[in-house]
Amino acid sequence: MILQPHEDQPYYHLISGEHGTGKTTLIKIASKEKRISFTGQLMQKFKTNDSEPKISKWEIAMRVLNHASTVYREKHNKSMVIVYDNIDCLVHTNPKILDILQDDAKRNADDRKYIAVFVSSEGSVPPKNAVAWSRADTPVIEIGDLSERESMEYLNKCRIDETEAKKLYELVGGRIIDLVTVANKSLKGKSFEDIKKNILMKVEDKMSAAKLLKNYQHYEVGKIVIDALLKSKELRRTTYEEFFDKPEVANEILEANVFSYHPEKNVVTFQSRAVEVYVQEYSINEGSLLE
């Protein structure tokens, strides 16, 4: 257990999973000690007038943190565990701060002062930080979707009949946040067709944001990637990137949550079952698939 460490506990971990798979919830359940929003407090404390954090003060903060970890170990005879949740938020907003956190965690992997746990959404695990992730003592821990059996058990416990539950599962798969959403709508009397239309409208918003709809900028390359995924279910990251003229475009589309990168296997898939349903049931050649 990462949050209840033993003497030989690895000192660098990366937990990855799509939004809505329950990463933060699981961490809160697993942690039995008081949780403090370290990054949240420091972001408020170290901001300048132009709202840009002072990097030098972050570096000072890391030295203080290292000292605190030494004191903690002396007092409790075990390592302090630091969880950096939602680090993907820093990729675009404060990449320098993310670099500082990772560099310190890399050094700590050798010095073994505290246990660092980085939690990120899969599509946002930045390739440029691959060297830092490689210092993790264990493989990436991926929090995935529920199995069909687990999903059906959940829907049945919500008092949704077997036939309706099966249709809901086939629509959204085992993504817990989506299961909760469709279960609540079903219990409120919404028809399956209305629920399905609402889910697919949200997918279409993602397709639009990724500029993958007909007459949009990335429509042609999007068709190629989608066709490949429909045939093989997953693509090696390098194979996915080869479809694009520029790596930054490949990353831009990946971050739009139509496709998902899984660092544990180094592959790209559809972001969710709902996305797969969208492209299976409607031809992307139709432009807006809900017209």
Rank of each mutant, 00 (worst) to 15 (best):
P139M: 03
S134R: 08
T239Q: 08
T163Q: 11
L230G: 05
E170N: 09
F244I: 01
L212R: 01
I141L: 15
V203T: 03
A209T: 14
K231Q: 07
L229C: 04
H218N: 14
K23M: 04
P247R: 06
Y278A: 00
M80W: 11
V277D: 09
H13T: 01
K128V: 06
T39Q: 00
A30R: 10
V225R: 00
W58N: 02
Q271L: 14
E220G: 04
K57T: 15
S208C: 10
K223F: 07
E220H: 05
A68G: 12
D104T: 07
E204S: 05
E52M: 14
K23I: 00
L65G: 08
Y278S: 06
N215W: 07
K196E: 06
E204V: 03
A116T: 04
S120F: 02
T93E: 14
K57I: 12
R107Y: 13
E162C: 10
N94C: 09
K113E: 05
V81R: 09
S151T: 12
F118L: 05
K47M: 12
K78D: 11
N266D: 15
Y169F: 08
E255I: 13
L101S: 04
L65D: 06
E242V: 11
H67V: 11
K113F: 02
V221K: 07
G222Q: 02
K188F: 09
K197Y: 10
L98V: 02
D111P: 04
K196C: 01
K211R: 05
S124G: 15
D205E: 15
Y114I: 02
V225K: 05
K28W: 02
T70P: 08
K113D: 08
T70D: 12
T269W: 11
M207T: 06
A30P: 04
S208D: 15
L235G: 04
P263S: 01
V182M: 01
Q271S: 15
R175H: 15
N129A: 13
S260T: 13
E220V: 02
F244G: 02
I226Y: 04
E33V: 02
V268Q: 05
R63E: 15
A210W: 00
A105Q: 01
D205W: 11
D103C: 11
I160E: 03
K223Q: 11
L42K: 04
F243T: 00
D88L: 12
Y219R: 05
E52N: 13
R175A: 07
N66C: 11
M201D: 09
I195S: 05
G287M: 06
P95E: 02
R273L: 10
V225H: 00
E52G: 09
I115E: 01
S232K: 14
I29G: 10
R112F: 01
A116Y: 05
I60L: 10
M201Y: 10
E52S: 13
E241Q: 06
N108L: 03
E142C: 13
H92N: 09
V221C: 04
S120K: 06
K157A: 12
